[in-house]
């Protein structure tokens, strides 16, 4: 276990590089992941709203549309190809899939504004570093990144109702889901106040998971073999979107319907228009 020592310059200068590396490796690593049971999701939208409130995502401007909006968590309704009344559809909450391998956004960012957090596996976006080239948006296979086309706008009263744990972003930068990292901060500082480095898993629950009225989303540490999520992803109906790309997303889905599982390998379309007219 790694321990921060008090600031003592003399003590630390004598430390060899080897020691530093040893220490970094001995740090306990988490791999946060999520699993969504699509058969339980009925597209109520609570997750999307809770997400926007938690992460200080502003409401839309009048001109904003589905292409220019900012929805870290966006729920798509995907129909099967059948006609009424054989039609069926599935609601798919889509957000940053936290790719572990060759993370497309990390690879392309010219600014190093995106990186995989070494301790949590969360793909972190630093809007302050972002120069707004939107290369990452083009690279993201899940369309899970959003660009601030305008400055955020809230009514004066709503500005006092922002979540103090997440900084609002400015015009011209890209943003995305980070598994409510602000809540991890809060959980860590709560643990720290009690003298512990280990957080209580109940303290770190992203807003979408907490708000889902159907309890369709499970969240936890994939590295921790005893966690609910690491058990749940072993189910035979578990799949990931576009797994053929090999980016190893840390967001899993589950559905008993075969057509839903097959759909996951097709490119996800942004609008029903694309769906119907190709």
């Amino acid at each position: 276990m790694h321990n921060l020592r008090s600031w003592n310059v003399e003590n630390n200068t004598s430390k060899g590089l080897e020691n530093l590396i040893m220490e970094t490796i001995s740090e306990k690593k988490s791999q946060y992941g999520m699993m969504i049971d699509l058969d339980r999701c009925n597209g109520c939208g609570a997750c999307a709203v809770a997400c926007a409130v938690e992460n200080n995502v502003p409401p839309a401007y009048q001109q904003t549309n589905t292409r220019t909006g900012i929805t870290w968590m966006r729920v798509f309704e995907i129909p099967n190809d059948e006609q009424f009344p054989q039609s069926d559809s599935v609601f798919v909450p889509m957000f940053c899939q936290q790719c572990e391998n060759e993370t497309p956004c990390v690879t392309v960012c010219p600014q190093n504004a995106v990186e995989i957090d070494p301790l949590t596996g969360i793909v972190g976006q630093i809007p302050q570093r972002c120069l707004g080239c939107r290369y990452c948006m083009a690279a993201c296979p899940y369309h899970a990144r959003y660009f601030n086309w305008r400055d955020p706008k809230w009514t004066d009263g709503m500005k006092l109702q922002l979540n103090p744990d997440v900084a609002p972003r400015m015009r011209g930068v890209v943003e995305k889901c980070n598994f409510c990292h602000g809540r991890l901060h809060t959980a860590r500082q709560k643990a720290a106040a009690n003298g512990s480095e280990k957080i209580d898993p109940n303290d770190y629950v992203p807003a979408c998971v907490e708000s889902c009225p159907n309890k369709a989303i499970i969240f936890g540490d994939l590295e921790d073999g005893s966690s609910e999520i690491s058990q749940a992803i072993k189910s035979k109906n578990t799949f990931r979107f576009l797994s053929r790309l090999g980016t190893e997303p840390k967001v899993y889905f589950n559905s008993g319907r075969a057509w839903v599982r097959e759909m996951a390998e097709q490119a996800l379309t942004r609008t029903k228009k694309e769906e119907i007219y190709g």
Binding site: L4, K15, N19, D117, L119
Partner: peptide, 11 residues
Amino acid sequence: GRRDGCIECHK
């Protein structure tokens, strides 16, 4: 010897 990611200290 801390090797932290950006989001460790940025919110």
